[in-house]
């Protein structure tokens, strides 16, 4: 763990949430600063639940959140926070019979853009940001998956929020769109706080200044992408033959075997990457303690 981010926009302390008997968040503690932070973790680690608590659409069972200096547990401060918040849910639903323009305009009304001219200008602006301006009159049901994802991103950008919470924003985007999303997100991160969850370590390497790894409902790592790679320092090996021990390894493009953890026979040390650190963190804490 490294020092906290320079400007703290969001603080989470001991956040807990359970559904019935299943514990989803088990004392999450983290801090977010300005810039883009990536949230990595396997399915079921509690990423979406954490994001929903931060986006004020779900009340946690315990712990506390302070975002932009506001406490979402208080109904008044929660509304104030929502005025400065943009949220892309994991499964953004749509009204399929609406047009792209109508759908974004609808969310704009929910974001209290009551004046028609201002609202329409803002709708056009966000549609331009995600390059859906020329699809404004298309019915939502006719859009491809990637377009829907961009549409969902557009509504999150309404009102130029200071805090953006994006749950798997790159799902469904093709490589070119993904690259453009990265450019947009990093530009937004210059002056705002962006928290995005992803399965893709490449997304994190490409655009995140900080990364948080979640596992079993807790934040097990916070730091820079470089720090995450450093977790694997001295525990990444390349060998010509597969390791005999039970350890995490895979065959790479050049025909050698990359092993994480204990050194295999005749293994050469290799430079660790973000993915190595991430996999080792998920691999189990016992191994980590041993090193």
């Amino acid at each position: 763990m490294t020092a906290p981010p320079a400007t703290v926009a969001v603080t989470v302390r001991d956040l807990a949430k359970r559904y019935g008997r299943r514990v989803v968040l088990d004392g999450v503690t983290l801090e977010l600063g300005r810039g883009v932070t990536g949230l990595l973790g396997p399915n079921g680690a509690g990423k979406t639940t954490l994001l929903r608590c931060l986006a004020t659409t779900l009340a946690p069972d315990g712990g506390e959140v302070r975002a932009l200096g506001l406490d979402p547990a208080d109904s008044g401060e929660r509304v104030a926070l929502r005025r400065r918040l943009g949220y892309l849910p994991q499964d953004p639903g749509f009204y399929p019979h609406f047009t792209v323009f109508e759908l974004v305009e609808y969310v704009a009304i929910l974001k209290e853009l009551t004046d028609r001219v201002t609202r329409h200008r803002e709708v056009r602006r966000v549609l331009g940001e995600v390059d859906l301006a020329d699809r404004a009159q298309a019915k939502v049901r006719r859009l491809s998956g990637g377009m829907r994802q961009r549409l969902a991103l557009a509504q999150a950008l309404l009102g130029d929020p200071e805090l953006l919470i994006l749950d798997e924003p790159t799902v469904g985007l093709d490589p070119e769109q993904r690259m453009r999303f990265r450019a947009l997100a990093s530009r937004l991160g210059e002056s705002r706080t962006v928290l995005l969850s992803t399965h893709q370590t490449e997304d994190v390497a490409a655009l995140c200044e900080r990364v948080i790894v979640m596992k079993d409902g807790a934040a097990v790592f916070q730091g820079t992408p470089g720090d995450l790679g450093a977790v694997a320092a001295g525990r990444v090996w390349l060998s010509d033959r597969p390791p005999t021990e039970e350890s995490l390894f895979w065959r790479t493009a050049d025909g050698r075997y990359r092993t994480l953890g204990a050194r295999p026979p005749a293994g050469d040390p290799a430079d660790p990457g973000i993915e190595d650190g991430y996999l080792l963190l998920l691999g189990g804490s016992s191994e980590r303690e041993a090193s």
Binding site: E129, V130, D131, A183
Partner: peptide, 8 residues
């Protein structure tokens, strides 16, 4: 304004 995706 930055364009998310270039116009085709």
């Amino acid at each position: 304004m930055y364009r998310f995706l270039a116009r085709r």
